[in-house]
Design a binder for these strands. Structure first.
Lengths: 197, 197
DNA sequence: TCTATTGTGTACCGATTGATACATAAATGG
DNA sequence: CCATTTATGTATCAATCGGTACACAATAGA
């Protein structure tokens, strides 16, 4: 059974991608519906019919971001055999993140750290995603400790928070335009803090 | 010769402080003139007569921030004899930053990383301030290398960028509500990356 | 007191914000 | 064909945005 009614004239995924790009570059409050409509190539009613509201559109973009960018980060973290290499490769991937030819750095790590009272729900959502990334790091490092990749007696949550902070700092500096060599040097230095080296 | 005309009925510095608090907590785009007027306890014409525009008010708040908060950070950095202690104390001060009972973390380090096209000048201004902090770190570490506090052959700009990234990560996590003990543990870990340890 | 100067309070400006009403177009199922 | 369902395009909504016109109040110098 196919879909009833007039078919949608635009590609939902492509439109979502255009929205993601705008939110990534300008933030939630810095992106207007007018700009979204233009970039997505659709008009108001189509946007609201397909996505509900600006906030729901943002959550949809966030979900797309997780699929298209976040998942790869978690895969690096979890699938790299050596824990140290996993973290180092993760940091390198963060430094290399970019939305097409647009904004650099991790959207979640720097996103909506401050916003107006009316949009606090969006800020909380992004902050929660930062928590997810930190939890993933914590889990991976806990596993590393169990596997002997990290010496006993190391404060794992603190170590995870440290590398989370690195991700956030790298993302800000990437967004500010730091060149790849500098980011690589930062990562090299960050790995000097790896326990037991 | 005293001032002519009707005297101002509000304390300019106090009003600026109230504005700073709002910008710190909600960011430039997340703060409306209506909220500023309410918090500053003045009406539109008084605000515009005294401060010019929202953007100029923000720059004024930024200048106040530098005097009230930034200067102390630079003092720690430059006046602490031992370079390692200077950096460690600086990081601790960042972790401890707070606007009264309001937002935590360094305003500049996390501020306006994304904003709408209309406000890009403000974003550039804040990004420039991040550059100032990084330059101050670079200068201090260059001095440390010259004084022998840091071994020869260390990439000083990279080391400065690393600790700048730490400041940014600490600021984000402080803003997100991380407790002081965790931030202290992050700093302890960050100092493990100090060259030559 | 008179004039000049500056700040305050009200009331309002055009523009933009996020979001819709309504008529019409395009598809499916019968 | 018709009825139903869904999408599009135009035109617009009330609310809020940053910013001001204007009348009046309060000071200083003459």
């Amino acid at each position: 059974m196919a879909e009833r009614g007039r078919p949608r004239a635009f590609d939902r995924e492509k439109a979502l991608k255009a929205a993601l790009r705008l939110f990534w570059e300008h933030g939630y409050e810095g992106t207007s519906i007018a700009e979204l409509k233009a970039a997505m190539g659709i008009n108001g009613p189509s946007l609201y019919a397909a996505f509900g509201s600006k906030e729901e559109l943002c959550r949809g973009s966030s979900a797309l971001y997780e699929r298209e960018y976040g998942a790869a980060l978690l895969a690096i973290l979890n699938d790299t055999t050596d824990a140290r290499a996993a973290v180092e490769t993760l940091l390198a991937a963060i430094a290399d993140m970019r939305c097409e030819d647009g904004p650099r750095g991790c959207l979640v790590s720097t996103g909506e750290t401050a916003c107006g009272p009316a949009n606090s729900a969006v800020a909380r959502h992004v902050a929660d995603r930062r928590g997810v990334l930190r939890n993933a790091l914590t889990d991976r490092l806990t596993r590393a400790a169990a596997e002997g990749d990290i010496p006993a007696g190391i404060d794992i949550p603190a170590l995870a928070a440290f590398y989370t902070a690195m991700i956030q700092g790298l993302s800000i500096q990437a967004r500010d335009g730091a060149d790849a060599a500098l980011l690589a040097a930062i990562i090299k230095r960050a790995m000097e803090a790896w326990p037991g080296d």
